[in-house]
Amino acid sequence: MEKNPKIEQLIEAHLAFLDHEFSQDDTIENEFLYFYQWFRKQPLKQIWSFEAINALLQKQILNTPATDSLIQQIAEHIRFALVHPLNEMTQIEDIISVHTIDRIALYISSKSAHRQALIKRIVNNPAFSSMLTELIHHSIQDYIDNSVMNKKVPGVGRFMKMGKSVLESVTDSNLDDTVKHYLQKNIIKISQISEQVINQHFDDNKLYHFQANLWHKIKQVPLSSVKNYIEINDLTNTVAMGHDIWDNLRQTEYLKQQVHDGIYTWYCHNQDRSFDLIMQDISINESLVQNELSALLCPVIKHMISSEHLKQRARVYLEKFYYSEPALSILKS
């Protein structure tokens, strides 16, 4: 395309005008706010559809695996937080309010029905019954074999052995089998007693005071003590295992459907609401935009203008305009 000197002058003048206008601090800030004032009044359904939002999240969150670099960064940030020098000087009560702990304690201790139902499920589980049987059996066996009286009172050891022999001859089996048989036969009754004892030990009042006492024991423990329970040098493997769980979960039809239905429910609730109301739900309001976001984004826009990126992109469209048929017709006339 042949260059027209007059059109080139117009383009340069136009670019100089834009460069001057947008180099002014007020211009960028005002245009940013004007855009926000327009954007905040738009209903969600006028800008984005449910299908577009769902497709974006499905693609970027569920269909895109995390990179090795991201996994390493997560592990490094966790390690950095755990070894930070402030942990030595910061106690648990410095970052967790006692009022929050008290509310949690009151809430947990008040859930009697849920707690009792959970205890019932635990004590009636075959695994619990098996563990309880083994525990009682070993306790009885240990008492017979290592009785305190057996060690301190002369002749009692011989008496205990004699009693054991008599019991085995009467039952026609050894003591271990006899005890195990008794426990297995009566495990349901023992489990019921266990349930009663646990519920008595963890009633509302006792459970509340248990949590309160626990808080008083740990509230002045420094945060650095967390390192005692986490293998810092193994964080890369730990985070990788957590990622493996997520990597499998994100590919399941279950999670895809959950995300789809969750987005749909949210969209139906919000589609007629304006963006300023939606943004208020996540604490973004006009004051934040004016005082914080504009201060954050305006320097980026200013740098883009000063680097002549905007001028280069503007030239492309100005050339299209000035060399277009309508513009050429006006210039010729």
Results as ranks from 00 to 15, higher is better:
residue 1 M to C: 05
residue 1 M to P: 14
residue 4 N to S: 07
residue 6 K to H: 09
residue 8 E to L: 01
residue 11 I to R: 01
residue 13 A to Q: 14
residue 15 L to F: 01
residue 19 D to Q: 09
residue 19 D to C: 09
residue 26 D to W: 08
residue 26 D to E: 15
residue 27 T to R: 11
residue 29 E to I: 15
residue 30 N to S: 13
residue 32 F to Y: 13
residue 33 L to M: 15
residue 35 F to I: 13
residue 40 R to C: 04
residue 42 Q to Y: 07
residue 42 Q to C: 07
residue 43 P to H: 01
residue 46 Q to C: 09
residue 50 F to D: 03
residue 50 F to E: 08
residue 51 E to Y: 04
residue 52 A to H: 03
residue 53 I to H: 02
residue 57 L to E: 01
residue 61 I to C: 00
residue 68 D to W: 06
residue 73 Q to M: 03
residue 74 I to Y: 02
residue 77 H to I: 14
residue 78 I to E: 03
residue 94 D to Q: 03
residue 97 S to T: 02
residue 98 V to H: 00
residue 99 H to I: 03
residue 99 H to K: 07
residue 104 I to W: 00
residue 106 L to Y: 06
residue 108 I to M: 02
residue 112 S to I: 14
residue 115 R to L: 00
residue 116 Q to S: 07
residue 117 A to V: 07
residue 117 A to W: 04
residue 120 K to S: 12
residue 124 N to S: 08
residue 131 M to L: 14
residue 132 L to K: 02
residue 134 E to P: 08
residue 135 L to A: 13
residue 135 L to G: 12
residue 135 L to K: 15
residue 136 I to E: 03
residue 136 I to R: 06
residue 146 N to A: 04
residue 149 M to F: 14
residue 149 M to L: 14
residue 152 K to E: 08
residue 155 G to Q: 01
residue 157 G to D: 05
residue 161 K to F: 06
residue 161 K to C: 02
residue 163 G to S: 05
residue 163 G to W: 06
residue 165 S to P: 11
residue 165 S to H: 11
residue 165 S to Y: 15
residue 167 L to K: 04
residue 177 D to L: 05
residue 178 T to D: 09
residue 179 V to N: 10
residue 179 V to T: 14
residue 181 H to W: 11
residue 184 Q to M: 07
residue 184 Q to A: 09
residue 185 K to Y: 05
residue 189 K to I: 12
residue 193 I to Y: 08
residue 193 I to Q: 07
residue 195 E to H: 05
residue 195 E to L: 06
residue 196 Q to N: 13
residue 199 N to L: 06
residue 200 Q to K: 11
residue 201 H to P: 07
residue 203 D to Y: 01
residue 204 D to T: 09
residue 206 K to A: 01
residue 206 K to W: 00
residue 207 L to W: 00
residue 211 Q to C: 02
residue 214 L to R: 10
residue 214 L to P: 01
residue 219 K to N: 06
residue 219 K to D: 03
residue 221 V to D: 00
residue 222 P to V: 10
residue 222 P to T: 06
residue 227 K to Q: 12
residue 229 Y to S: 03
residue 229 Y to I: 11
residue 233 N to D: 09
residue 233 N to K: 13
residue 234 D to Y: 05
residue 235 L to Q: 01
residue 240 A to E: 11
residue 241 M to S: 14
residue 243 H to I: 15
residue 245 I to P: 05
residue 247 D to Y: 04
residue 257 Q to N: 12
residue 258 Q to H: 07
residue 258 Q to E: 01
residue 264 Y to L: 10
residue 270 N to S: 12
residue 272 D to F: 12
residue 273 R to F: 10
residue 273 R to A: 08
residue 275 F to W: 07
residue 275 F to L: 10
residue 277 L to M: 13
residue 278 I to P: 00
residue 280 Q to R: 09
residue 281 D to A: 07
residue 283 S to M: 09
residue 296 L to H: 15
residue 297 L to R: 10
residue 297 L to P: 08
residue 297 L to V: 14
residue 304 M to C: 10
residue 306 S to G: 09
residue 306 S to T: 14
residue 308 E to G: 12
residue 308 E to M: 12
residue 311 K to Y: 06
residue 314 A to H: 10
residue 315 R to Y: 04
residue 319 E to T: 13
residue 320 K to T: 13
residue 324 S to W: 04
residue 327 A to W: 00
residue 328 L to R: 15
residue 332 K to E: 11
residue 332 K to G: 11
